[in-house]
Amino acid sequence: MKSNVAVTDYGAPERASSKGKAQWPRVPKLAISLISCIALLSLWEGVTRFGLVEPLFLPAPSQILNRAMLMNDQGILLGHVVASTWRVTVGFLLASLVAIPLGIFLGFSPLSRAVFDPVLSFLRPLPSMSWIPLSLLWFGIGESQKYSIVFMGAFAPSLLYVMEATKGVDPLLIKAAQNLGAKSKDVMIEVILPASLPQILSGLKVMLGIAWTCVISAELVAAREGLGFMIMNGKEYFQTDTVVLGMVLISITVMATDLLFRFVEKRILPWKA
C-alpha cells in the first residue's frame, strides 16, 4: 500500500508540470490517490469477505498479507525478491555494458553498421521466451541461464535505442570537437556518449521493464527461486494468495527499481536540470 502512494507521488507532479495547465495542489492530489487506493482495497476485501468472489479465484488483500507474513516468518519471502532482482540486475547490466559502447560505435561508423545490420535484424524480433530452450541447453538450469535470458531480451532493443540516440546528436557538436583536436575515439567518448546519454537512459528505463518480463518468464519455466517461481509454485498448490502475492511483489519491486533508476538518472545528468 505504501508503495502505491509512492507511485502517485513521483508520477503526478511530472504529468502536471508537463501540461502547464492549472495544477492541483500537491497534497490534496496525494490524498485523493490515497483515498482511491484505500477504497479499492476495501472493495476488494469486501467482495471476497462476503463471499461474492470465491477466495480461490481472488483471495482478499488480508489473506495475501497473511501469506506474506507467513512466508516472511519462514524466511523465504525476501529470498524470492532478492533472487529475481539480482538476475535482472546482472542480465541488464551486462546487456547495457555491451549495448552502450557497441551502439555508439555502430552509430558512428556506417561501415560496421552495415556489417552488424543482418544479425540485428534477425535478433530484434525474437522474444526472450524463444531463447529459453536453447539457453537451458547451453547453460543448464542455473543462474547463468537466467542472466542469459535477461541479456538476450534486453540486448538487441537496447542496442537499437543506443544507435537511435546517437543519431540525435547535433552534428555541429561533432564538428566543433574535431575542430578542437578531437580524434574519432575522442568524438565517441567525449561527445557522442554524453550528448546521447539522456536518450540512452530513457531507452534503458524502458529496457529495465523488459528485463523484468524476461526474468519472470525464465523463472516461470525453470527455477527454484524467484518471484516467477513463487507464482508458478503457488499455482501448483492452488495457493492463489501466493500467486497474487508474487504479482504484487513484482509490481512493487519494478516500481522501486524504476524510482532508483530515476534517482541515478538525475545524478548522472546534472546539466539537464
Binding site: 557538436l173 564538428k175 566543433a176 575542430n179 578542437l180 583536436g181 554524453p194 550528448a195 546539466w271
Partner: peptide, 19 residues
C-alpha cells in the same frame, strides 16, 4: 582532414551542454 590549427567560432555557439 579537420585542421585544429584553424579554430572555428560557429554562429550557433556549438558549446557542449553537458560541460
Amino acid at each position: 582532414g579537420v585542421n585544429p590549427q584553424c579554430g572555428m567560432v560557429f554562429q550557433q555557439y556549438a558549446l557542449f551542454p553537458w560541460m
